[in-house]
Simulated scan of single mutants.
Amino acid sequence: MKVSLKQVLLTTLAATVLFAGNVYAGTTYDKVKNDGTVNVGLMYNSIPAAFFNEKNEWVGFDIDIATEVVKRIGTYMEKDLTINKVKVNNKTRISFLTSDRIDLSVANMTHKRERDKTIDFSITYFFDGQKIMTKKGKYSDPKDLVGKRVCAMQGTTSEKNLVNLLKSLGDENAEKNVISFQTAPDCFLALAQGKVEAWSTDSTILLGFAAKQAGMFELIGDFISDEPYGMGLPEDDSKWRDAVNFAIQDLWTDGTYMEIYNKWYGPDTPYYFPMTAKIEMWP
């Protein structure tokens, strides 16, 4: 049978594509060990978790924790791993995981059952709660915000929690009065300019932005909700999930976690947030 050059090329191309697709078939753990790089999704405008400082350096609590987690996983593998930082936001941090653009998401992500239908989570690595921030001295209680415009970040659990809170306080137009913005800086600017009367999200994010203009803003009321942060992981990938969990626990055990925590949230920082819980430990 006579085979044309075109058929030969097509067959070769198909085999090449098939081979390339199978090179990293298997777990994320094996892929990382093979290429020596962990693609980590991180926020870039969330102070003090992950942001660019005045020197344009990408810094923050999540940056330091993610770097240490990658380092520990490399130790388990007996290999030096490189962390490749990838910018994500509230909308992309999950889709980047499901599309294999990142291996790990360390991005202010509350572990929710709804999210767990799509991705997996590590054990809780940070303990936060949602609060409300207003201009200093203007309001003292969340009930004072009934009927007022209040900001939340679009697509977050904070947005849903805020609507539910205002409804419980008697705001019949809560869904209309909760104004959604894409990013934390957008919300902060809207509050500073008086376009909204308050902003509600995780308290450490609010503390970070309030510190930019010390004395002008304050957090009011009790916590609206608990917000346990987990590191987002690819679905059904237990070997990789175990490696991440072991790294978090080892950071806690040897004191590295609290060193990083106090660097960003300790009493000598503008973002003081006392530690009230501890990392889940396995014997």
Rank of each mutant, 00 (worst) to 15 (best):
M153K: 13
V70H: 01
S140K: 09
A214P: 09
Y257D: 02
M1S: 15
W264Y: 14
E235Y: 11
K212T: 15
H111E: 10
M1I: 07
P267C: 05
Y271F: 06
L165I: 05
F51V: 04
A20H: 14
K2S: 08
F51D: 01
V150F: 01
A20V: 11
I47V: 12
I119L: 08
L10Y: 14
F61P: 06
P234E: 04
D30M: 11
L189S: 12
G137Y: 03
L207D: 14
T27K: 15
S99P: 13
A190V: 07
N262C: 05
N39W: 15
F209G: 00
G21R: 10
V69H: 04
T118C: 13
P267W: 07
D80A: 08
R115G: 01
K55H: 07
D64F: 04
D171Y: 15
T134S: 06
T256A: 06
A214V: 03
N39R: 14
D250T: 02
T253V: 12
F188V: 02
V88I: 02
A247R: 00
T67K: 04
P48K: 04
K195W: 06
T118K: 09
A174N: 12
Y271H: 03
I83W: 05
G74C: 00
I248Y: 01
D242L: 12
Q249C: 06
S99D: 11
I205F: 06
P142L: 03
M258V: 11
V40I: 06
E172I: 11
T269A: 04
G266Q: 04
F126G: 01
K167D: 00
R101G: 09
M231S: 01
Y125T: 00
L162M: 14
S225I: 04
K2P: 08
G21S: 06
Y24Q: 09
V40F: 02
V59D: 04
T201L: 05
E227R: 11
K85L: 05
K131N: 10
D171H: 10
D62M: 03
Y24E: 10
V178N: 04
G147K: 08
K79Y: 07
I119H: 01
S225F: 08
A211P: 00
N84L: 02
P142D: 00
G129S: 13
Y125M: 03
E68V: 04
T98V: 07
R113S: 15
N90K: 08
T37C: 12
W264V: 01
D250E: 09
Y265N: 03
W252Y: 15
M258C: 12
N56T: 07
I94S: 13
G266C: 00
D254C: 03
V88D: 05
R72Y: 06
N173C: 05
F246R: 04
F121E: 07
W58R: 05
A174L: 06
A214G: 12
A107Y: 07
K112G: 05
F96N: 09
K212E: 08
K148H: 12
Q7P: 03
D222G: 10
S99G: 13
Y139C: 02
Y76G: 00
A152W: 08
Y44A: 14
L104M: 12
M77H: 12
I63T: 09
N164G: 12
L251C: 01
D171F: 10
S140C: 10
V244G: 02
T16S: 10
G170H: 12
G147E: 02
R93Q: 15
V106G: 10
T204Y: 14
D202H: 15
